[in-house]
Simulated scan of single mutants.
Amino acid sequence: MKNRRRALVLAGTGAALAATLIAAAPAPAAPADPAAPASSAASKPASVHGGGTIFFPYSAKDDIRFTVDADSTPWTRPLPAPGGEKGLPTDARGRVTISHHYAESGFTATAEAEVDCLVTGGRTATLTAVVKTSNVGWEGKRIGISVQDGQRGEPDRVGFSWAVANVDVKPDGTVAEGTVGTCMAPAPFTEVTRGAFKVAPAPLAPLPKP
């Protein structure tokens, strides 16, 4: 139990906060232009696949690994809010796994999460996933992951929404863990030292038909 508490502290976790999902009503679609090129709906959906070990300078001796299998599934997760009945263009599905082996204690923290959001821009993607199973008390917690698919010999990179980011300072000066909203993640601030990730980018999906 001592090791588990320590793992939680080092990972920057606290009590999981419930995320508030707010969707604005979509704007009316513009009339179709007969001369316009074919809709981007025909293009392949965005995705991120792969796995690797990262180097995290604040845990330089530890073995930290991520796997990501995420695919865009636009407008498939209805939200209980006006305008959100059809979901979001960034809806996604898939799985994320995390393993952090602490060299000093020998303890390995693990978590497996279900992807709920994915968005890409070039060879960089951000995604979020809700933890389903964990040995460090993360169940129900939404986590944010960013992935950069390295090009021209550059390494792949990964970022994550705990340990160095997502601190919420209250007006009274107290500090708490911030809520991770869908698709919210920091820049990919660590390098992948073994393994690889593939980001397949795609534009945002068109608005659904009324």
Rank of each mutant, 00 (worst) to 15 (best):
L79F: 06
I54D: 07
V68R: 00
P82N: 06
A36I: 09
F66R: 08
A70R: 06
G84T: 15
A42R: 03
G51T: 14
S39G: 08
A41R: 15
A36H: 13
T73A: 13
S47V: 15
A30N: 00
A30F: 00
A24Y: 12
Y58V: 12
W75P: 11
A30W: 01
L79M: 14
G87R: 13
T73V: 10
W75Q: 08
A60E: 05
S39D: 09
G83H: 02
L88D: 14
A41Y: 13
W75H: 07
A35K: 05
A35H: 03
A35W: 02
D62P: 01
A27L: 06
L88I: 13
G83D: 10
T67W: 00
L79R: 13
P37Y: 05
I64H: 01
A35P: 03
P82L: 07
F56G: 00
T53M: 12
A38C: 01
P57E: 10
A30K: 02
T73H: 15
P34Y: 08
T90R: 09
D69Q: 02
P45C: 10
S39W: 07
W75M: 08
P45L: 06
P28G: 01
A41N: 13
V68Q: 00
A29E: 09
A36W: 15
T53G: 02
V68W: 01
G51N: 10
A29F: 03
A35L: 06
F55H: 03
G84I: 15
S59Y: 04
P80K: 13
G83L: 04
T67E: 01
A35D: 05
A32Y: 09
D69P: 00
K44D: 13
A81I: 15
I54L: 10
G50M: 03
A70F: 00
T76N: 02
D71Q: 09
V48P: 02
P37D: 08
T90C: 12
F56R: 15
T90K: 02
P45W: 11
D62A: 08
G87I: 07
S47Y: 08
A25W: 04
D33W: 08
D62Y: 01
S40R: 11
A81P: 13
G52I: 04
L79V: 14
A27E: 08
P37G: 04
K61R: 11
K61Y: 10
W75G: 04
D71C: 00
D71M: 06
V48F: 04
A25Y: 04
S39K: 12
A32K: 10
T67H: 02
H49E: 03
I64Y: 05
S59W: 01
A24I: 06
A38F: 12
P31E: 10
P89K: 01
Y58P: 15
H49F: 05
P34G: 15
P57G: 09
S40P: 12
V48M: 09
F56L: 14
T67G: 00
P78C: 09
A60L: 03
P57V: 14
P34A: 14
I64A: 03
